[in-house]
Design a binder for these strands. Sequence first.
DNA 1: CGCTTGCCTGGAGTGCACTCCAGCGTCTTA
DNA 2: TAAGACGCTGGAGTGCACTCCAGGCAAGCG
Lengths: 156, 156
Amino acid sequence: MQVAKDTRQRGSADPMSCEGDEQGHPRPLGQDRYTISEVAEFTGLSAHTLRWYERIGLMPHVDRSHTGQRRFTNRDLDWLALVGKLRLTGMPVADMVRYAELVRAGDHTYPQRQALLEATRTDVLQRIAELQDTLSVLDHKISTYAGARCAPERTA
Amino acid sequence: MQVAKDTRQRGSADPMSCEGDEQGHPRPLGQDRYTISEVAEFTGLSAHTLRWYERIGLMPHVDRSHTGQRRFTNRDLDWLALVGKLRLTGMPVADMVRYAELVRAGDHTYPQRQALLEATRTDVLQRIAELQDTLSVLDHKISTYAGARCAPERTA
DNA sequence: CGCTTGCCTGGAGTGCACTCCAGCGTCTTA
DNA sequence: TAAGACGCTGGAGTGCACTCCAGGCAAGCG
């Protein structure tokens, strides 16, 4: 399990790549091969989590050094950035795995991927609306407390 | 554990109450004493969850009928509505319990409650910003898929 | 050469927020 | 008054998303 030569260098972030063209990371190093701990520090995920993501298929298979250590590319970093965004939306990991599978399956899954993202988009819009609603509730209560003239409600 | 007479009727939602004056529920029944299943249907929480909320101190102690069954009031419904909102913000249940404790502790905790809500508010604002950021990423990717002219990225 | 540091693996453990169960009592409608 | 729906309790179980562990390579250094 630790003999996978350092093969092809997967041309770094070419500006026309489709998965992972988000907004160009600060690119912590000029390099295109990061160790797991570099990626951990950079993404805020733990090394454990990164390995786990790979195990469950949420990462495309990551390159290995000649001794079997993971070497992440800029493309991997971009993918992780997308995953991070999707995670913020509350999308379950299983759904992200499904999306990753579609990506792995090839170009012919474009329509499904688009549909999935559009569903997510709808979701996000709704969540934003909910939060704004919540915000107004909070503001209301805060102003009540600010003008602290309020009957003792439920306190015996 | 099942002898708690139907005592005081805790004057229903008087318009100046401090906890739970959000936006007036559709008030499913004209009554002020609801069974657990009514509340479950109304809030979307399960009866299990309602009992659990009470156990962990997230509900003020709920009235009981003469046979020990729970009888929720409009005020309880209002409280649950607030809890629902806070839950949407991703606030951990433990924090909501802390807030509930402050409410139980009496009026002198107004400043802490206000601080807690303001922290939550900041949180919510940040989360909205994140989601809007995510939204723009999604829109970008969706439009990429829509104009489906995109190189075969990571698919062998 | 030995030591430290970093990384590897499969599998077990954790924390959160429920969710369900067994076994029992109560209420309602026929 | 009998049947079936509803409610009660403490405690065990579930699903998710990590998080940690033991035991073991491998590279760099004094």
